[in-house]
Design a protein around this nucleic acid. Structure first.
Lengths: 230, 230
DNA sequence: CCAAAAGTGTTAGGTGTACACCCATGT
DNA sequence: ACATGGGTGTACACCTAACACTTTTGG
């Protein structure tokens, strides 16, 4: 049957965070070891023999970055020979969202440094991680329109304008505020709280909350979240 | 750094074919070796050291089934420990479509037998392949609505009713023929040929053809294939 | 002339899109 | 009173969904 298989399995994560108007970021670590020592890369590492792929991602993110995961799904598996200059490595990549609340970062163990980078100000990335990131950006962009994942990038209670700006930032287009609000509210999955947030100038904003339970009930009854713009 | 990693990487393919009204099938092979010897499983096998994942799927499908691939995309990667009773195996699975023209099967090498199974009459599957198949069915169902993949399950020239039946079979719902035809034709990506097919009873049908080039041109100009039904 | 499947139009209701002014607060 | 961002309504165009009869062929 030919030569014994000699391939490693790794997991890598693309972690997105959103802070304010036009500030969509991704979490990177500065590599402490060769290859690509000193360059920036996606958090990740080899899978251990007895853990699942998801457990591996969660472990690596905890070890390397200390963030709390709000949303996680498998992204894509990259397996071309020569992705890694040392051995052949097949990388199962994951797509992760984090709410601003959970941004807290601790740089302990094997990562020399951890940092959020605005997507508009990225450094050169190690390995084929730019390709992975581009794949994740596409996923984020397309999922935003047919799944309520935007709420995993905002705190539990948020002013409506944050949601608007989030959509405009990710989709990279202008959206009519009135139509956006109307459509979003028409789903009946967002509820008004009795709180009000005053920051900076202008009229204070009511805070809203995503009702996940309501969304799941509706989904069972054949409701489809769908919000598109020209 | 603990114990050396001991994980194998395999590829498996879910190959769909469609023949006639309500006849959506998947290609399975009867396993010639342990474990699960004599049971039915998805075609697939271990990845060789110097081939890409896609090359591995293509090689396995050629070796084991002899079909011609019309559409291929990565499906999902299954990596729980204990999927395989012998070693830990991470399986990168692929989603494949085949036109009726390309159904030709040859059972040569390591597969004891190859066979198309109607999705309504499936045997028990080896490993976690039922889960893989279910994932592929979902993918097929959802992609059908926003990508023109249905045409990769029909011959190049097809009567309109085949397309209708294909959609109804996969989506498992009744669709109004008049509205379906109107909407499908309105995209301008299907053209009439001057051929006519007479089979069985009833009025003979014009044959149509999917214009892929036209579709790609439109896609560049921000056209989105989208065909949904209540 | 009957059976079988192909082919075709209209209407009403709902949804998407475009668009502009008033409101509440801090300075 | 002014600057800043929050909050709201309407009208028209377009698309969706519901629905039934005629045409062409073979037996």
């Amino acid at each position: 049957m030919g030569v014994k298989q000699d391939i490693r399995v790794a997991v890598d994560a693309v972690v997105f965070g959103y802070e304010s108007k036009n500030n969509l970021s991704v979490l990177l670590i500065k590599r402490g070891i060769e290859p690509f020592k000193g360059e920036w890369a996606l958090p990740g590492g080899l899978v251990m023999n007895d853990e699942s792929l998801e457990e591996a991602v969660e472990r690596e993110l905890k070890e390397e970055t200390g963030i709390t995961i709000d949303y996680l799904e498998q992204l894509y598996t990259f397996g071309k020979p020569n992705r890694d200059p040392r051995n052949r490595v097949v990388a199962v990549t994951y797509f992760v969202l984090v709410k601003p609340n959970h941004f807290t970062i601790k740089a302990d163990t094997d990562a020399a440094d951890v940092k959020w980078f605005n997507l508009k100000e990225l450094p050169k990335l190690a390995f084929d991680h730019q390709l992975v990131l581009d794949t994740a950006k596409e996923r984020l962009k397309s999922k935003l329109s047919y799944q309520p994942i935007g709420f995993d990038l905002l705190n539990d209670e948020f002013p409506f304008s944050d949601l608007e700006h989030l959509y405009m930032t990710i989709l990279e287009k202008e959206i009519d505020r009135r139509n956006f609000r109307k459509k979003m509210l028409s789903f009946g999955i967002i509820e008004e709280t009795d709180k009000i947030e005053k920051i900076g100038s202008g009229r204070p904003a009511k805070l809203f909350r995503f009702n996940k339970v309501k969304f799941q009930q509706l989904t069972v009854n054949n409701f489809h979240f769908d919000i598109k713009f020209v």
